[in-house]
Design a binder for these strands. Structure first.
Length: 393
RNA sequence: GGAGGGUUAGCGAAGUGGUCAAACGCGGCAGACUGUAAAUCUGUUCCUUCGGGUUCCAUGGUCCGAAUCCAUGACCCUCCA
């Protein structure tokens, strides 16, 4: 399979610029391209992973990835469809940059890494307006989908300007790093095309770009959130076991798509899993492969094996050294549930017990006033949250 | 600068003096059915020592009583200049 075929197979192309020779050049290799992210948190999450894997995929076809961390753009804030972002403290953003850089270095050690703060920080307002502002027509900007959607809700001049910065990044990388292609998530299409336009207007050159579709569940909800929280790539924020569990619970109808998107398994391997999955969905072979492969990529084979063993032990009614463990100081079942993050309040904990959603050592708890006299036990909340609890005196 | 409209639970959205801890939908959580999937059905969704307590942008006020009326302020939207 050539590069373009592989991208199509994996569902990685949503929009692409209409250069005549785009597909040819993708297949030929040798393009320098970049993909970026803003430091909105100190860790990347599962959604980022699916995008950044493109670095490795394209590198395997002979292209040269540059990874950009948006120190400058992070200070401005990419407009969200709903509302203005809160202004982040610069110290937070600088701290986030470090966290994200370290992760990217770890996962993509062969990529060149750049920070747009480096080439943006010394540009003066007047220079920027004179040298680049003239290339942008307000009507053009307002017609970008993301801006249009914000016109009702309101958008600050700051966020409105975001696309100019991202466009300038592309231009700068084009001029200084010979970077001729940009890749990003589908929500970045407007920003990307601004960059392509800027390069055309300022340099009279063609640039290339494509976006990748958002990874969603069957019903179109963004994939990669668990209990309202992102699944972080940082092991201390989301344990290998949690990551494994999240992936193994993927919907049947989506699991093959996720395998294409999140792993480097070949078409043959994925086809094989698809057959197995269709024949015996209850074996969850495809789900297991997905979970294992992703955890292996993130945390190494050893951690992946541990996560798999823990998962299999726990869901066969057993225990494991690697299962999530909480230390609590209470003996009252409601307080224990809150301490173990199974409930956010005692009211919620009480409701859980009353609805029959809590078990201790496989026995359903039916008394909300239960005092637990064991010092170590297995607590189950709902169907899937199974943890070890140690009571500390 | 002028005129008008708005701000209600995670989100969307009703509610215009008491019966409002606030309809309804989505989302979330739990139960049943299953395969750690989906769909479906049922229950639930501010806190609580279960007596009650604290909510409807903020602060003050009117009233026996305020999400609802008044004043001031903040933020947002639309139109005009």
């Amino acid at each position: 399979m050539n590069c373009y075929e592989d991208l199509v197979y994996r569902g990685l192309i949503k929009d692409m610029t209409n250069n005549e020779d785009f597909i040819e050049r993708l297949n030929k290799g040798g393009m320098t391209f970049y993909i970026g992210t803003d430091p909105t948190a100190d860790s990347l999450h599962l959604g980022h992973l699916s995008s950044f894997l493109i670095c490795e995929r394209l590198a395997r076809f002979g292209h040269h990835p540059i990874v950009l961390v948006g120190g400058a753009t992070g200070l401005i804030g990419d407009p969200r469809p709903t509302k203005e972002r809160e202004k982040q403290d610069t110290s937070v953003i600088f701290k986030n940059i470090e966290g994200i850089k370290n992760q990217l270095k770890k996962y993509f050690p062969n990529c060149e890494m750049v920070n747009n703060y480096d080439w943006t920080k010394d540009i003066t307002f007047i220079d920027f307006l004179r040298d680049y502002g003239k290339y942008f027509n307000i009507n053009y900007m307002i017609n970008k989908d993301i801006i249009k959607r914000r016109l009702d809700e309101g958008i600050s001049y700051t966020e409105f300007s975001y696309m100019l910065m991202q466009a300038y990044d592309f231009l700068w990388l084009y001029q200084n790093k010979n970077c001729i292609m940009q890749v990003a998530g589908q929500d970045q299409w407007g920003n990307i095309t601004s960059g392509v336009e800027l390069i055309r207007k300022a340099l009279n050159k063609d640039a290339y770009a494509f976006t990748m579709p958002l990874v969603t569940t069957k019903s179109g909800v963004k994939f990669g959130k668990s209990e309202g929280n992102a699944l972080w790539l940082d092991k201390d924020k989301t344990s290998p076991y949690q990551m494994y569990q999240y992936l193994i619970n993927s919907e049947d109808e989506m699991v093959i798509d996720y395998l294409k998107r999140f792993t480097f398994l070949s078409k043959e391997e994925i086809d094989d899993l698809e057959v197995k999955h269709k024949e015996k969905p209850e074996n969850r072979d495809a789900h297991k492969a997905l979970a294992f492969e992703v955890v292996k990529f993130l945390h190494g084979e050893e951690e992946a094996v541990k996560a798999r063993e823990a998962s299999e032990a726990i869901f066969n009614g057993g225990i494991s050294d690697d299962m999530p463990t909480f230390e609590v100081t209470s003996k009252n079942i409601l307080d224990i549930l809150v301490e173990c993050e199974c409930a956010t309040s005692k009211s919620e904990a009480r409701r859980l017990v009353q609805q029959g959603g809590v078990s201790i050592d496989s026995k359903r708890v039916d008394d909300a006033n239960l005092i637990v006299d064991k010092l170590e036990f297995i607590l189950q909340k709902g169907k899937k949250k199974i943890i070890k609890v140690i009571v500390k005196e």
